[in-house]
Simulated assay, not measured.
Amino acid sequence: MGPRFHTELEAVYRDMRQAHGSVVPVELPGDVPAWLVIGYREMYQVTSDPVLFPRDAGLWNQWDTLPEDWPLRPMVGSRQPSVYFTVGDEHRRHLAMVQGALERVDHTELRRHAEELADRLIDGFCGTGEAEVISAYAKPLPVLVLARVLGFPDSDGPELISTLGAMADGGPDAIHGYEQAIGLMYRLVERKRQRPGADVLSYMMAFPDTFTDEEYVLDLMALTAAGYLPMADWIGNSMRLMLTDDRFAASLTGGRHSIAEAMNEVLWEDTPTQILAGRWAARDTRLGGQRIAAGDMLLLGLGGANADPSAHAADPADGLRNSNFAHFAFSHGEFQCPFPAQEMAEIVCRTGIEVLLDRLPGIDLAVPPQTLGRRPSPFLRGLSVLPVHFTPVHAQGGR
């Protein structure tokens, strides 16, 4: 953590490689030891071997040392019966339910929701000629779209924003934010049991297998937490790139192909999910020249692995990845983000960016690029603010 992690990230990873190689000894809050994997090959090895490096938090050799209020407990989990923390047959059972529900989401309807909600948000500030994109648009848009698709009412959006944000930042409010979010999930499960609808949670509850309310809630939490801030940061980081990098200037004047290129470049260079916890060594082993003990935690340094120089030897001179999607932005292997969820995230984020550029002529950054700050989270990489100015326009309703 610390300011250099947010202002000189490329240099931080370079210094880590020089001092430790591709697997770095780090400390989590409270002097809790872990290993941060930042090598491309090592990341592939860890995420491709669920036997040697399972996602089984129960193996962790540090549980007995942790206080009950340790702020990263919600991020790590402890044998929780959800798609994110289960392993083996139980994980595959949860994944079948969740993935089956996501596959039933109509992409045309999803895009319509994203366009409608994007227009509603833009109507709130388009007449002023200025806006702060992160708080006014990039954060609320994914929450409102997810709320509709998963089954939440729109009115739950503001509470989801505050609770999930506190949880993801891993600060003193993390535990309280997690408890509040879980409460929202339980209430939604009860509502959908009484009145199911055409939404992801109802599809999950209709799956032909038996799950408890706790399992529905924790799977819903996994979908919501994994979708909200990464999508918000994907929108914000892509807009920052397009407003500050001449390679993507065409996207601001209608060149829609450049939006897709900018979004893919962000997944390589500025990926929203920088670090994931994690994997645990099933036995003593070696990785990247380091001795890993049984029960040690390995943090997946997705951003660090994407930046590994060995992964870019054949990059074109201009640095654009174009159609190269071999990044770790969605992780990799058995526990990667399900493909239907990746498709949904791309639709929501791209639609959000397109609508914003269509509606706000002459949009430009309102502050020097070097003054843009990052949220204080080592796990998720997103902007705190993104101030812009543009030519004022009427709201779609004529206001």
Rank of each mutant, 00 (worst) to 15 (best):
P71I: 03
L218A: 05
R187S: 13
T210Q: 14
E215G: 09
R350Y: 04
L276C: 03
D169H: 09
L241M: 12
L72E: 01
V348D: 00
L252Y: 12
S22V: 12
G373C: 08
E130G: 12
M221I: 08
A226F: 05
G236K: 10
P309H: 05
W280N: 00
Q80R: 15
L141M: 04
R283G: 03
Q62W: 11
Y216M: 15
L201W: 10
L252C: 10
A174C: 07
G183H: 09
I235N: 03
A345M: 04
P272L: 08
G295V: 09
L160R: 00
P25Y: 10
R321P: 05
L276G: 14
Y216N: 06
W268R: 07
E214Q: 14
T163H: 03
D296P: 01
A249M: 05
H327P: 04
S377F: 12
H332G: 01
I134L: 08
S22F: 11
C349E: 00
V266W: 01
L276Y: 06
S22T: 15
E116D: 14
A131L: 07
R381I: 04
M167W: 10
R286P: 00
P368D: 02
N264K: 10
A341C: 00
P272Q: 06
L66H: 12
I353H: 10
L320M: 15
E68V: 11
M75T: 08
L184G: 00
D270M: 13
D123S: 02
A341I: 03
A282P: 07
L365Y: 12
Q194Y: 08
Y178C: 07
H327V: 01
M16Y: 15
F335A: 05
L360W: 08
K192L: 07
R279Q: 08
P142E: 08
D296R: 04
T47I: 07
G301P: 00
P67C: 09
W280G: 02
L141C: 04
A277R: 11
D209W: 11
V200D: 07
G170K: 03
T7P: 05
S323Y: 14
Y137I: 10
D154L: 09
H6N: 06
V24D: 07
G183P: 02
H332C: 02
G303Q: 08
D31H: 15
R195L: 10
R92Q: 14
G157N: 02
A226R: 05
T285E: 05
A168T: 15
Q80M: 13
G288F: 06
W60T: 02
G183Y: 02
I38H: 04
P369V: 01
E42I: 05
P392F: 05
Q370W: 09
A282Q: 15
L357K: 11
I134P: 00
Q18V: 12
W63Y: 07
H394Q: 12
T351V: 14
I134Q: 08
W280K: 02
S22R: 15
I38C: 12
D358Y: 10
A206Q: 13
L299N: 02
T47A: 13
R92W: 10
E215C: 06
G295Y: 10
G254L: 03
I259P: 03
M205S: 06
A345V: 07
V24I: 14
V23A: 12
H394S: 13
G124P: 06
G227R: 01
F53L: 11
F390A: 02
T224H: 11
P392S: 00
F211W: 09
E354C: 09
L141G: 04
R79S: 13
A225E: 06
S384G: 02
